[in-house]
Design a protein around this nucleic acid. Structure first.
Lengths: 150, 150
DNA sequence: CATGTTTGTGGGTAAAAGTGGGTAATCGGT
DNA sequence: ACCGATTACCCACTTTTACCCACAAACATG
């Protein structure tokens, strides 16, 4: 099992590569074998799953039936964006052009650890996202975290 | 077992050949021996199964009853269009004319990996298909891309 | 604080991938 | 057997990718 936390500012080079922060590398399960799946996330960011975590998601997709038109749409939509990627010798990962375009990523990224996956943002868009929340961290947390505390 | 994911834009040459994306080739089980079965898919696209996955499908078709008219219809349609094809030296596959016509494929294709099979679309028709579905990526993903779903 | 090591970043180059086309076998029908 | 059409199997070219090497900044260690 892999678990991530923290945020990091990193650069994207001319080949579309980003370095995976050393602190995150330490938290990648050895099962993943330096293999990752990059896909489209929510709110114009990208999700990176180490292979072991992606395998779990794939399990849930497999439960869908190809015979059901609705399920076919779900499978296509989800898998369309998914790309396998392996770390290079410098522990970097290549972000595919289509995904870079989707997330409007250029020279700089914000890398966030969110439990089982890693998020990659255009820093500016992340700021806007935070600003667009018309409620405070404290209030939302109160609503979300309280039931679990009880 | 072969598993596919991702989407790729490739060209179809004058001989009706398409290249199998390298990333997909890596995920073809060695059991398949470069042998594939191409057949009619759902929603005007083509399905390509590596041999090992086709064998599984064939097993499930065998369980259908020839006594049931609906079963007969499905069996006939699926098998009528099915064609075996082998990769050439450049790891390309030839799409039969009848199937190209059925899927309205001309010079460009969108190749989708959908777990156990590969789909081949006329890019325009795929766009139309996606547009015709009254659901968004975000909605679909919300149901699957969360840990609890596993 | 000095020094060896890891980390983040950039770039060069050989290999692989994607694409197009030529030609020799193969097949079907005269 | 012959001929035209189709198919299988090469060869060639361009672009992309994978795999190196290099180096400065940051970190860790005694």
């Amino acid at each position: 099992m892999s678990t991530f936390k923290g945020s990091f500012s990193y650069s994207v080079d001319s080949k579309g590569r980003i370095n995976l922060p050393a602190k995150m590398r330490k938290n990648v399960s050895s099962e993943a074998n330096d293999l990752f799946v990059i896909t489209r996330g929510f709110e114009s960011c990208l999700f990176i799953y180490p292979n072991d975590e992606w395998a779990k998601l794939e399990q849930s997709i497999r439960k869908l039936s190809s015979a059901d038109p609705k399920h076919r749409f779900v499978m296509r939509t989800l898998l369309q964006w998914a790309t396998e990627a392996q770390l290079d010798g410098q522990s970097r990962i290549i972000l595919p052009k289509e995904l870079l375009q989707f997330a409007k990523i250029e020279n700089e990224v914000l890398i966030l650890g969110v439990l089982e996956h890693i998020e990659v943002w255009n820093p500016k868009l992340y700021d806007e996202y935070i600003a667009s929340q018309n409620d405070t961290y404290e209030n939302v947390a109160a609503a979300v975290l309280r039931p679990a505390a009880g």
